[in-house]
Amino acid sequence: MSIQHFRVALIPFFAAFCLPVFAHPETLVKVKDAEDQLGARVGYIELDLNSGKILESFRPEERFPMMSTFKVLLCGAVLSRVDAGQEQLGRRIHYSQNDLVEYSPVTEKHLTDGMTVRELCSAAITMSDNTAANLLLTTIGGPKELTAFLHNMGDHVTRLDRWEPELNEAIPNDERDTTMPAAMATTLRKLLTGELLTLASRQQLIDWMEADKVAGPLLRSALPAGWFIADKSGAGERGSRGIIAALGPDGKPSRIVVIYTTGSQATMDERNRQIAEIGASLIKHW
């Protein structure tokens, strides 16, 4: 067993022997301040990774656009098919120029040779490549099948209805392509620590998230040296922004954090800054 596999296998073990965790309302004060600064709703939840206990939450059962955070769930569904012998990570998928959609920095470079399922998941999570996500959605049967996968996990809230990039439209009061912070946090925890996926697939999923290259201005910008984070960000229309993450000190994750916002007129930089400040408060009061 590799060191990384050992780390993920012992996530519940280490967490069980940690000192009790206590909620700190100071972080919620910052979440509410972010709402004021952005002029928009902000949803927040913080779960203990081992027990699933909610440590703090704000608007945990209000719907927010998922945006690209759905790509972690998508690759979880792909990995479940791999575990069941219905898919192979090494299978190569070929596609054409007509398949390319807006923001496809990886797939646009491989029109000639195609990409493997493993490479597509890596591109979808680490670079948020939209064509990679659409190609992977095709392998599982489309958005409705991802929703069905989530329902089978016990998540009857999260739903995907459309493809990239239309799913980022974020129309107010439109339930399409949305989740709730509580539902997303619980589902992410199941994917990373539950028995739904094999140990190898859980490790692969967290490795992809740990290698995320496009979430630097968010929670990662607030992390002290030595902290662990595996995350996936999302951005959408109407001032929408979000991030889902597993993080913790001492090089291992111990909490799940989900943050979503929508309806702001603020710039992307300002949305990023507010999420980073929430992260800084979380870490300060850990």
Rank of each mutant, 00 (worst) to 15 (best):
S2E: 05
H5N: 14
R7Y: 09
R7L: 08
V8M: 11
L10H: 06
A16L: 14
A16P: 09
V29C: 13
A34I: 10
E35N: 03
G43Y: 00
Y44A: 02
G52K: 06
G52A: 07
L55W: 07
E56A: 11
P65V: 04
P65K: 04
L79C: 04
V82G: 05
V82W: 07
Q86T: 12
Q88V: 11
L89V: 06
L89W: 06
R92F: 10
Y95H: 05
L100A: 04
V101A: 10
E102V: 11
E102C: 07
Y103P: 07
K109L: 14
K109N: 12
L111H: 09
T112L: 15
E119T: 06
I125R: 00
T126H: 06
M127C: 09
S128Q: 00
N130C: 05
T131Y: 05
I140S: 05
T158G: 05
D161M: 05
P165R: 07
E166M: 14
E169G: 14
P172L: 12
E175V: 15
T179R: 00
T179I: 01
M180G: 11
P181W: 00
P181A: 07
A185T: 03
T187Q: 05
L188H: 04
T193M: 14
T193F: 10
G194N: 10
G194M: 08
E195L: 04
L196V: 14
L196A: 15
L197N: 05
S201D: 02
S201I: 02
S201P: 03
R202W: 03
Q203L: 10
I206F: 13
A211L: 13
V214D: 02
L218Y: 02
L219H: 03
L223D: 01
A225Y: 12
W227Y: 07
W227V: 02
I229P: 00
A230D: 00
A230P: 00
D231E: 04
D231T: 04
K232E: 00
G236T: 05
S240R: 02
R241E: 03
L247H: 01
G248F: 01
G248R: 02
G251E: 11
S254N: 13
R255H: 05
V257E: 02
V258A: 09
M268N: 07
E270M: 13
N272D: 09
R273Q: 10
Q274A: 13
I275W: 02
E277H: 08
E277R: 12
G279A: 10
I283S: 06
